[in-house]
């Protein structure tokens, strides 16, 4: 039961939220399931890496890399831009909570906590960018290499 609550449910929440974003961004058909799957996968990787990493940044990095690889793969299969899947699947990782708590701390005059939270927010956003950048560069390199050896 604990297993279900801790590991599976959050991924289902992430899946459902991504389906909601598909309705907002006008994604139809099987694309919705792919986006939802990406969101669930990202959060699963985030949770799993929690077992071997105490700090959050490596976990966000791993999740972003996993989502990017997944989206690139799906985009190759369905022959459409990778953006659609990447944008939606990354959304659950965006630090919305951090923005909110930073605002709460600044409102209550707790400058120390405010700055710390703000830096974490920027750190997470940067880490997500770095992870996605890293993964898609590697994919691009790999594809160029594969094309060259085939010829």
């Amino acid at each position: 039961m604990d297993f279900l609550l801790e590991w599976i449910l959050p991924c289902i929440y992430s899946f459902g939220a991504c389906i909601g974003f598909c309705l907002l961004f006008n994604i139809h058909g099987p694309g919705m399931l792919i986006c939802g799957g990406g969101g669930a996968l990202g959060w699963l990787v985030y949770l799993l890496t929690g077992l071997c990493s105490a700090t959050i940044f490596p976990r966000y990095l791993a999740a972003a890399v996993a989502i990017t690889l997944y989206s690139e793969w799906m985009a190759r299969i369905r022959r459409c831009p990778v953006t659609s899947y990447l944008i939606v699947a990354l959304l659950p990782l965006v630090p919305g909570g951090g923005i909110y708590y930073a605002m709460r701390y600044s409102l209550s005059g707790d400058n120390q906590q405010f700055l710390a939270t703000l830096l974490t927010v920027f750190g997470i956003a940067g880490t997500l960018a770095l992870g996605a950048l890293l993964a898609s560069s590697v994919v691009r390199l790999f594809i160029t290499f594969a094309h060259r050896t085939r010829k």
């Binding site: 449910l9 959050p10 929440y13 992430s14 899946f15 459902g16 939220a17 389906i19 909601g20 974003f21 598909c22 309705l23 907002l24 659950p92 919305g96 909570g97």
Partner: peptide
Amino acid sequence: IAVMLGYFLIGAFFTPFF
């Protein structure tokens, strides 16, 4: 209505997520 459902779903799923 489907778009409204989308807004509802995002809020409804992210709240337990957090």
